[in-house]
Write a protein that binds this DNA or RNA. Sequence first.
DNA 1: CCGAATCGTTGACCTGCATCAAGTCCGAAG
DNA 2: CTTCGGACTTGATGCAGGTCAACGATTCGG
Lengths: 249, 249
Amino acid sequence: MTANTMACAGAESVEVCAGCSARRLSVCGVLEQEGLRRLNDAADHMSFSAGEVLVREGDPATHLFNITVGDVRVHKLLSDGRRQIVGFLSPGDFLGLATGDQYAFSAEALTAGSACRFRKTDYRKILREMPDLEHALLDRAAHELKAAHDQMLLLGRKTAMERLASFLMNLSDRARRAGGEGRLIELPMTRAEIADYLGLTTETVSRNTTRLKTRGVIRLLSMHSLSIERPSELLHLAGLDAEAGDAPV
Amino acid sequence: MTANTMACAGAESVEVCAGCSARRLSVCGVLEQEGLRRLNDAADHMSFSAGEVLVREGDPATHLFNITVGDVRVHKLLSDGRRQIVGFLSPGDFLGLATGDQYAFSAEALTAGSACRFRKTDYRKILREMPDLEHALLDRAAHELKAAHDQMLLLGRKTAMERLASFLMNLSDRARRAGGEGRLIELPMTRAEIADYLGLTTETVSRNTTRLKTRGVIRLLSMHSLSIERPSELLHLAGLDAEAGDAPV
DNA sequence: CCGAATCGTTGACCTGCATCAAGTCCGAAG
DNA sequence: CTTCGGACTTGATGCAGGTCAACGATTCGG
């Protein structure tokens, strides 16, 4: 699962990027040889283990990350410990876009993995020199903003079941984008993390998962993977099959 | 309140931008004479009246907007009519960042006002030619993403009173940024719109507003304006004075 | 392979906010 | 000034999901 961590960290020059399985999914996918070399020179190819903290809310925002292997959780806390997970990152995702002088979120690895880490100042300079990269990053930011709006709709207006169903549909889409067929879903996160992402409690997540299982909509393969048995049913439960402004893809 | 709508729509060339009160707050604030002229040529200076629809969810995303005067509401709908307002825009704000081929949201004017409207294809071309503008837009996107994360925390984990207090604090910040001192707040939106922004109902918004009034934290000046009597109290109620990763400004 | 710690499930009960239902207030049109 | 309709407030009641509690399942270090 974390096989090419070492391959990435150990290799040299563009070779690292050339062999990077996340490039296809990442902003650096738009770059040519020359640009990749330039970016690669500025990158610190780091690896991390499960549970490792990449970014701590409130710390000076000095670095940006491009996840190449593994999964990462991004969250915010209230003083009494209430937690909201604002995103799960997987290979190709960019970490640090929404950042001022201090990080406004914490980021912690769900699994072992690796990332390209950049000094923010360096990255800013690189962006100046490579408009294509900046353009790709703006595209990425637009996508994230759209996803954030969807999540606001989910958190503000959807029921517990709709939230869970939407979440599973999103994971299915992501799996498809990463190359799978979207039927088998990996859940690298715990129930508590799903709950904190959906604005619910573990108990509510668990109960609704059971309901989906009982109704035959999903099948649990293990604690951290499941298969979608009736995609259309799930879509319906997510309230996605007839959203107001829905248009055919 | 909408005084310079005509001034903007009627003038010519860079003069329009030169006299634009929103420039200071907008992405075009980074541009020089030459760039402004270029942008101005591509802009359709439009005005709108209260209630007018600027963008409809699901429609082909052909245009981008820069609000120059007035306030705008951006929202998403579920098929059964449940609504989530994802943002209120005021002068200087950009509309259309989070957009793919179709608009994923609707935008409707709260008040009369005006905007610079661009064809998306034109704007993309302009961005290619003007890296400064693209850079400014990326900054703006980062800010919006950060705000979206804050709103996710609010919607997912805050109580009704915390949501309302946070909302008022945000309006206060915005008023300060626009030049005021942040004590007097204008509420161009209805209680129902506040509710749909905070993931609540009108009744809950009303009850909590009354509570704030009774406790002397705020004072209602009219239906659509109030003053913050005890900012520190409000900050406390918003759960902002001691958020986990909080750092001094 | 074992045991402890953590994670997940299920049940019983409770509560914050939604819902339902009257009113009251306010602003725009005559 | 009056009148009308929508916006707002307030109260009574209900319920989705939170909380508390008990108990299985899984994982992992040794």
